[in-house]
Every structure is written in structure tokens, then in C-alpha cells.
Design a protein around this nucleic acid. Structure first.
Lengths: 193, 193
DNA sequence: TCTTGACATGTCGAACTCGACATGTCACTC
DNA sequence: GAGTGACATGTCGAGTTCGACATGTCAAGA
């Protein structure tokens, strides 16, 4: 049931076609909240239309059909948001799982993954910070409006990932270096693992 | 395919029964990486056993069957971990989605959700910090060993969520207070909505 | 010994999700 | 006017996931 509310939320921000929605899922929201492919989105839009939660506002070229969230849709979305604010609801995050299992790899392999993780996360932070600055300017608000909250959540999340990756690298690097560099550097007393 | 690798990873840390695994999924890993119910876990364990990736090490009371990850299982897991370290792979996180859509709610409703979010996240941070300290002591290592990395990832993630929730509350609170407290506090010029 | 509740596993149908395949439109270019 | 590629939607089968129902074990207490 989460998919339909994700769609309603996106439409509430701005009327969109299925194609647009697919792009928006692949973009921001799909990275840390909910992802969906067009093969799911189109049928769901039709269902939502039948139930009156969205409505068609435009049919453009190439069968492009633009939908908008109705009042009923907003009511449904808000009911869902208020319904179970503390439930966690079955997270699936393959990237996080890989990080979770990092201890299985050899330190040098893990270091490589961590390097990529940190670089990727820092890139995301930069992108989102630019987006946030643009929002601040556009809305004339320090918080960047409703979307600003969302963007900041992303910034906080990716920054935390980057910081953790850095910390983890240092831990692993220290362990790995110990074994190797004690040979040619001055080995100031440290117990072997 | 992620489920089996999550299971292999958990078994690698410590041999467990299906029942144990269900608890461990519900506990730490399920909160931010991968969740699974027992109705999925038991069949997958049998499949892994047939494929030689895990093996039975004990049959206790109440049909309790304890599995261990085999060398073949470790090989498979490491191959998977090294295979596609950058793919994001379709995140599903209902809790994050709710936060993502927070702008839809009235400020006061959103504030309530944020309050609960912050409290929950800080609770998680405390739990995990205690676990990390225990790990440091048990392993005699500042990094807490392989599991320490994982626990720190959780700490970083939940701390980021808590900090964001606090920030978002302040933003919303400022907006909401403006409308109300201008009446009895000194109303320094601000345009009405 | 009977009941209760936690432990432990099994199974099934419904719903969800994905990738692959398919169809057609439109702007641009050669 | 034929070819190309991005735009835009549709569909289907295979695999995944979940909740609900089911079965049985064992310890503790009434």
C-alpha cells in the first residue's frame, strides 16, 4: 500500500504523468525512501483514478496523461500518514545490507567498498545541498519549504553515511597498516590482533 | 537474492536457528538494512542447506535446528559483496517515506510525528551505543571488531535522523509560532499568510 | 493434570515487485 | 520519406514477500 501514497505525495507536490513519476522515483525519493518502476506506476495510477484519489488534468502528445491528486486523495494520504507513525514496516535496502555485511570481506576489499561509499555519499550531499540552496532562493524561506525538509533529510542521511565510511576506513586502515608497516616504520608499542 | 546473503551474513557471525534469525532480523538489521519474516526464512534455510551454502550443526529440543555457514556459503557471500558495490537496488522504507511526505501534514501534526521520530531515533542511538561499548570490551578493540562497524553505521544513521528531526521541528515550530504568538508577543513586522 | 504461554517450525494464497518484451508517438536529420 | 532516438504507455510471467493459519514442544504454575 505504500506505493500509492508515495505517488499521491509526489502528485501533491506537482501534477505529473506516469513517465514523470518514474523519473522522480528514480531520482531523489527512490534513493532512500521508496523506489518504483513504470510497470507498477501506470497500473496504480489507473486504479487511483478509478477510486477518485487522482484525476486526469491533461492529455498531451504521445498519449501523455497528466494526473493530479484530488481532495479525496489528500484525505487518504493524510489518514495514512497519521495512522501508524511509529511502525518501521519492513525495510529493504540492498546497499545498506552490503555495508552491514562488510566485516565479511578482507580489510583491503572492504576499504575499497568504503572508499566508493564515501565518494558516492559525498557526491549526493553536494547535489542535495545545491538543490536546497535553490529551494531557499525560490521559496524565500530558510527552511526551503515542505520540500526543503525532505532534501535536508537526504543531506543528513548521506552525510552520516560518508562520515561513517570515513571512520570505518580509518579503523580498517589502522588494522591493515599495523600488519604491514610495522616492518619498515618505527613500531611504537601496540599489541597484535 | 538479497535475503539469502543477509542470512549467510548473520550465520557467519554466529550459528543460529530459523527462530533466532527471525529475532535478529526483527532486531538490528531489519531496522535499516533488510527485514524478513519466519515464513521466508525457514524455506530459504532449507534451500541453502540443499545447495551446500549452510549446514545443520545441531538439532535441539522443540525441533530447534541450528545452522552454520559453510566455506561455500562464505565464498558465495563474498562474491556477491564484491559483485556490484555501487548499485542502489530499489530501496523500500516505509518509515523514510512517511518522513519524506511530512510536508503534506499540517505543521502541528507534522511536529507530533517529528517528536516521535526524534525520540525513537535517540532511543535507538542509546541502545546501539551500549551495544558498541559492550563490543569494545568483549573484543578488546576500539573499533569493536567487524560487528562494531555495523553497529556504528546504525548509530550514525539514527543520530542523523534525530538531528534532522530536531532541525525540522525548529523550522516548523518557528513557522507555526509566528502565526500564533505574534498576538501576545511583540509583533515585529512579518507578512500574514 | 490441566492450562497457559513462549519456543519453534511449516504452509499457503494474495499481493507486490521486477525485468523483459511490446507498441506507438513525435522531433530531428539526412 | 526513411531512419534514429527520446518520449510515453501497456502487459505478462517469474520471483519475492507477507499475513494468516496450522502444528507441535516444553516449562511453570494452579
Amino acid at each position: 500500500m505504500a506505493l500509492r501514497y508515495a505517488i499521491l505525495g509526489l502528485l501533491l507536490d506537482r501534477p505529473s504523468s506516469g513517465y514523470d513519476l518514474a523519473g522522480r522515483f528514480a531520482d531523489v525519493i527512490g534513493a532512500y525512501a521508496w523506489d518504483a518502476k513504470h510497470s507498477q506506476i501506470y497500473p496504480e495510477l489507473r486504479r487511483l483514478d478509478q477510486e477518485g484519489l487522482v484525476e486526469v488534468v491533461d492529455r498531451g502528445a504521445r498519449r501523455r496523461t497528466t494526473y493530479r491528486c484530488t481532495g479525496e486523495g489528500l484525505t487518504a494520504l493524510r489518514a495514512w500518514l497519521m495512522a501508524a507513525p511509529t511502525s518501521t514496516g519492513g525495510v529493504k535496502n540492498e546497499h545498506a545490507l552490503r555495508l552491514f555485511l562488510l566485516g565479511v570481506l578482507e580489510p583491503e576489499e572492504a576499504l575499497e567498498v568504503l572508499r566508493q561509499t564515501e565518494a558516492g555519499a559525498r557526491g549526493k550531499v553536494q547535489d542535495l545541498e545545491a538543490e536546497f540552496a535553490a529551494l531557499q532562493e525560490r521559496t524565500g524561506s530558510a527552511s526551503g519549504g515542505p520540500l526543503g525538509l525532505t532534501v535536508q533529510l537526504g543531506i543528513h542521511s548521506f552525510r552520516a553515511t560518508a562520515q561513517w565510511a570515513r571512520w570505518a576506513s580509518e579503523q580498517l586502515g589502522a588494522d591493515a597498516d599495523l600488519d604491514r608497516s610495522r616492518a619498515d616504520q618505527c613500531g611504537s608499542g601496540s599489541s597484535a590482533g
